[in-house]
Design a protein around this nucleic acid. Structure first.
Lengths: 244, 244
DNA sequence: AATATTGTGTGTATTTATTACACAGTAACA
DNA sequence: TGTTACTGTGTAATAAATACACACAATATT
């Protein structure tokens, strides 16, 4: 019999990419006054859930991601555990918990994960009815410590894409160099020089040009590339460069 | 009244530096057969403890570090949460828990922290009687999933010292360039070219030469330097260099 | 007094990476 | 036929990474 552990949860910061922009999936939280039927407050949270008995914490995160996006086998990475006693102590959070989840403990440690999904592949029907996408730069009011969680998730994602080719996980199998650049720009929040960026990517042996070009685009068709994890793993070297 | 939370703990991987080498502090775990008085097994674990009610998880880690080393205000960083159901399921671990901590839950999520201390400043009297230092390259048999925890802690430390000047936290206020180099070599486990390393450090404006030299050393006395976090923070720039 | 030991301080040539920057061309569409 | 939007390309300047050798100073050893 699966029960929830009332003091351990996971929270998934689901980054969605589309239209050259980065979004976060958030769930609306609205508490109604029992008497008047008026909303007491409205805010948003990232997707989370308590872990179940007998469940690995990584599996709990995958479960939440699957529930909210319908997606499996997606890049999903733990980035930090949040365990301050104050994290669920604000008035709205206490009200919400007491009325909605009376069994939850006073103290909940949550393990934060982020993932990076193709926003266009998340079927709105599969997403939870109260969930929607917000541009990372324009977040609404957030519950609990979820502002901190999202900030830290974004920092972790930004570090990750500079150090490992995880961004390629998100691109279609065949992609153009502009697609790679736009993705990096969306994640990092900066503009990158096109020619220098292409030079950089071109020197990566594991980004392999195909004999195939775009079709039906209203401009010079771009060459397609594929990413090879195989070549990547076979050719990568340890680097010991101090850079701060 | 402070109680322990029986399903959440912290584990501190305490790295100690001395003699140009990196060590890990481990605690001996020996279970005796109640009848024969013979040891059933002996192994080692990193220092951990369950968190207490009303305690921030970061504070729990600080508490453990203080208990085991007597040290306060030391670089201590959370690096990963470990929450697989199998992590305390091995025979020795179950035997140990059932006889020693019967109240502990079947499932314990642990939050891993690492710290970096001056091994020579850890007073052996203050250290737990069963604790001792092991070179990172020669670890004994480890309990639970502590091999994985230590491996991941070391990777996190290695990444951290390349990206941020945290290694300087460990050096004495006044240090020589060779001391910096030896510390990096110990943490990274590689040899670095002396002239290139000095060139690198010398270009850092926040590593400031003093008008003071070593004394009583059996070779040319080296110049002392200090590290300035102030200058560091004032001069640091965001970098967006892809490097993998 | 001589010598061994151990670490200090210094420079250059080569290669590689980073940065800043401009123009001609192609496919679709209006 | 022009407009739009993106492709593909190169160079000069600067900065960083790498590989590598010798003279010197302070102490300890004989």
């Amino acid at each position: 019999m699966e029960k929830i552990l009332n003091n351990i949860s996971v929270d998934c910061v689901i980054f969605g990419y589309a239209d050259d922009s980065l979004y976060v999936m958030l769930t609306r939280r609205e508490l109604m006054d029992a008497k008047t039927g008026q909303p007491l407050f409205t805010d948003y949270t990232v997707q989370g859930h308590h872990i179940l008995t007998g469940e690995n914490v990584d599996d709990a995160a995958r479960r939440v991601l699957k529930e909210k996006t319908g997606l499996d086998n997606i890049y999903l990475k733990q980035f930090h555990a949040f365990g301050d006693i104050s994290r669920i102590q604000h008035t709205n959070d206490q009200l919400w918990l007491k009325t909605t989840y009376p069994d939850v403990s006073d103290y909940v440690l949550t393990v934060g994960y982020y993932s990076l999904v193709d926003k266009t592949k998340v079927n709105p029907d599969e997403a939870h009815s109260f969930s929607s996408w917000f541009p990372v730069a324009e977040l609404p009011e957030l519950g609990y410590d979820h502002r901190e969680i999202i900030d830290k998730a974004l920092e972790a994602l930004q570090s990750a894409v500079l150090k490992e080719p995880v961004a390629f996980e998100l691109l279609p199998e065949k992609f153009t160099l502009l697609q790679v650049q736009r993705l990096y720009e969306a994640i990092l929040g900066v503009n990158l020089d096109r020619r220098n960026f292409r030079k950089k990517i071109n020197q990566m042996k594991y980004v392999i040009p195909l004999d195939e070009k775009q079709n039906g685009v209203p401009h010079t068709p771009a060459q397609y590339f594929i990413f090879s994890w195989d070549v990547y793993h076979k050719t990568k070297k340890e680097k010991y460069n101090i850079s701060f």
